[in-house]
């Protein structure tokens, strides 16, 4: 089984640290979502794994070996990094033919991946005439070309239409079900949660979380409850006595964090607090993710650096 192992990886660009002592493992048989705000170091990490950038220190290996030592690497690892990797004057098919030839992948596979990504009708058109979504599909076709055990995709749903997004979600699930190691970067939490089993979250080049999606939701996504009452004083006292963290909004609505309506409803009834409104507020996964990365997001807002 082929894992990706990143160990104490650091990459500096002219004194700016894009990746900062990063350690994590991506295991086969599941989709690992690679999350972080823009500039968190996701793309840099992927380039380091592929041996395209030289690390300042630390190592990244695929199946225990550095990528650069792999024999015919496209047969082991498929990657989508940039949607603009194909020359606009070449046809999609010719682009894949050249890639296939370099790793002695049979021509039959070129036509198979064109079919699989829905590009077969456009295969003999120049890439210049492709939409962004089609270029993205061509990049995914290139990643699948060598039938690799490890698939790395950098923001694969960029530019895809809703149908394409559903397609990529199914594709990722299928690749993982086949036992492959799948790492997919994104800056969108909800999208990632729709296909990932496991999360690796980065912020400013550092590891913020390395956890199953279920655990992430369980540990971080806490519901809130909205309450309106005609007796704010008693409600406030009651909540405080029971150790709930609550805030009263300007419109008189209370928000109780980490509380369920089932518990609060009983409590309010027992205490005979008049209730005008009692409702569950769905805390979102996106919010939990934003809380985790907020410090880093603030940083990137000031620096506007893409890594």
């Amino acid at each position: 089984m082929t894992s990706i192992d990143v160990h104490d990886l650091t990459k500096e660009y002219g004194g700016r640290r894009a990746v900062d002592h990063l350690t994590f493992t991506v295991r086969p048989g599941r989709v690992t979502g690679f999350l972080g705000p823009n500039g968190a170091g996701k793309s840099t990490t992927l380039r380091l794994v592929l041996g395209l950038d030289h690390p300042t220190s630390g190592t990244a290996t695929v199946g225990g070996r550095p990528y650069s030592e792999l024999h015919e690497p496209l047969r082991r690892v498929g990657a989508l990094l940039d949607a603009d990797a194909a020359h606009g004057s070449r046809t999609g098919r010719d682009h894949l033919l050249a890639l296939a030839a370099s790793n002695r992948i049979p021509v039959r596979r070129v036509d198979e991946v064109l079919q699989e990504t829905g590009l077969a009708p456009a295969a003999r058109r120049r890439v210049r005439t492709y939409s962004l979504g089609m270029r993205q599909r061509l990049g995914i076709a290139a990643a699948l070309l060598g039938d690799p055990e490890v698939v790395l995709l950098d923001e694969p749903s960029n530019g895809l239409d809703p149908e394409g997004i559903v397609w990529i979600r199914r594709l990722l699930r299928r690749l993982a079900a086949q036992g492959r190691t799948v790492l997919v970067s994104s800056h969108l939490m909800n999208e990632t949660a729709s296909f990932a089993d496991h999360l690796v979250v980065l912020g400013r080049g550092r590891l913020l979380a390395d956890t199953p999606v279920r655990d992430f939701i369980h540990a971080r996504v806490r519901p809130g409850t909205r309450i309106r009452t005609s007796d704010d004083e008693r409600l406030g006292g009651l909540l405080a006595r029971h150790g709930y963290a609550a805030d009263r909004g300007a419109d008189g609505t209370w928000t109780v964090r980490h509380a369920r309506v089932e518990d609060l409803g009983r409590l309010l009834a027992d205490a005979a607090v008049p209730v005008l409104e009692l409702a569950q507020e769905e805390a979102t996964l996106e919010q939990a993710y934003l809380d985790l990365t907020s410090a880093e997001a603030e940083f990137t807002a000031h620096h506007h650096q893409e890594a």
Partner: peptide, 13 residues
């Protein structure tokens, strides 16, 4: 051009 070199070198490291 664009990401062409990265793709070429990921095929031939």
């Amino acid at each position: 051009r664009g990401g062409a070199l990265r793709l070429a070198l990921s095929a031939v490291p």
